[in-house]
């Protein structure tokens, strides 16, 4: 059975236990949330949630219906990447070593990563990319001495 990754974009009420209801509705049925991004929209009463999950078409269909049933959920959109722009942001902390110093400098320059912090031993770069690209960049950075990273998870917006 194909277990594709799916991105779901939700508009929900900006209230204390809404996230718990969403996590509970999916978790209670055994569906895992693989990434999650929540923020208030321009209308502070409404939050936007972008979550990703994995499953076949039937699973996705059930998840969509379950979310639609929640009283506090205003809108559910299954994201079709043909119509959406998708990005995520990572902050990566890299230990500077003599071995990779030159290579790092070249990469930062050519990939246009933004150095957001720097001292003698470590630097932190800000990387923006789509998910697949990000996976590649992170495995590359780990070879260059990356010690830690924080990733926002997928965010999307309709074109």
């Amino acid at each position: 059975m194909e277990r594709k990754e799916h991105i779901i974009s939700l508009l929900v009420k900006n209230e204390p236990d809404v996230l718990a209801r969403i996590a509970g509705a999916l978790g209670g049925k055994g569906y895992n949330i693989e990434s999650l991004c929540v923020n208030a929209t321009a209308d502070y009463r409404v939050s936007k949630i972008i979550l990703t999950t994995r499953g076949n078409a039937a699973t996705l269909n059930r998840i969509e219906k379950l979310l639609n049933k929640l009283i506090d959920v205003i809108q559910v959109d299954v994201v079709n990447l043909d119509r959406f722009v998708q990005k995520e942001l990572t902050l990566a902390k890299i230990k500077i070593s003599d071995e990779f110093r030159a290579k790092l400098a070249v990469d930062i320059d050519s990939y246009k990563w933004k150095v957001v912090w720097l001292d003698g031993d470590y630097l932190i770069v800000e990387v923006t990319a789509d998910k697949d690209e990000m996976d590649k960049i992170l495995s590359h950075l780990s070879e260059l001495g990356m010690v830690e990273y924080t990733r926002t998870g997928t965010i999307v917006i309709e074109r």
Binding site: D17, A20, R21, G24, A25, G28, I71
Partner: peptide, 14 residues
């Protein structure tokens, strides 16, 4: 109790 009954109510309020 709203936390406890979240999965077994249609909806709940505090």
């Amino acid at each position: 109790i709203t936390g406890i009954t979240r999965p077994c109510t249609k909806h709940n309020f505090l």
